[in-house]
Amino acid sequence: MTLLAQTLIFGLLTGGVYALMSSGFTLTFGVMRVINLAHGALLIVAAFFTWWLWDRTGIDPLLLGLGLTVVMYGIGWVLYKTVIARVQRIDPELTLVASFGVAVAASGVLSLIWGTEARAATPSYFNTSISLGEIVIPRAQLYACVGAVLLLAALYALLRGTFVGRSIRACATSRNGAALVGIDVERTMAQMFAIGAATTAFGGAALAVLYQFVPDSHYVWIGRVLCIVVLGGFGSFAGAAAGAVILGIGEALTAAYWDTRWTTAVPYLLIIAILILRPQGLFGARHRLEGATT
């Protein structure tokens, strides 16, 4: 029983981090209908930045992740202006190929700069934990999850309570209507894409603390992100959060009761299962649009 409780808590903490990691992807799809396959690469870029800065300065990697939010926002903005927006004007579906190209290119650049050796940022609390009776909560997982949940709350508040957020949500519903109330739709799209990229900063920092990574790890992470959004229903913000928790718990249960090596297969098994049983995702078609922004 203790093992089960321990496993569920561990899965929940992991799921919280996954929820942040997938939120930007979901937002980009919900508002722009762009499947950004570079999202996994953005997570790995943020992870490398975090590791490099931590290695140089010794500053807590999760705090570095917060600081990197601005950097990743800027990278997202440039990526949108130089690639996504241009390709979208030619054919919106081409963004899928273009973003995959960006991911491959980013992986190559990271390999050139930092090599293909596995990296990880291990702060002083990495191997410490908090005990609640018989249950042990690893500090790294706890801090990463708390940070991720706080950032998700901030993202929610931004979308719900600010003019920028309402503009983004308005554009998601009717770009023509948004333009007619004076919203600069193109600028709002760039802001939205950049916010999506900014969420990878803390997500990448958490990844750097909790996992080992190499430049090619973006394939694994885009696989996880896709699993989460397929589980929740493409474009559904609330669905992605639920999908993230399910994946986190699924991986934890697999590791605890079966074999750690099988955890990497869990996302793909879940995708196959959900596509057979409920292709529209757990939250269904009705929630796809509204969920993306609520």
Partner: peptide, 13 residues
């Protein structure tokens, strides 16, 4: 100001 054709209201808001 212009009131757009049907569908200009932001239904999710």
């Amino acid at each position: 100001v212009q009131v757009p054709q049907a569908g200009g209201l932001f239904g999710d808001l």
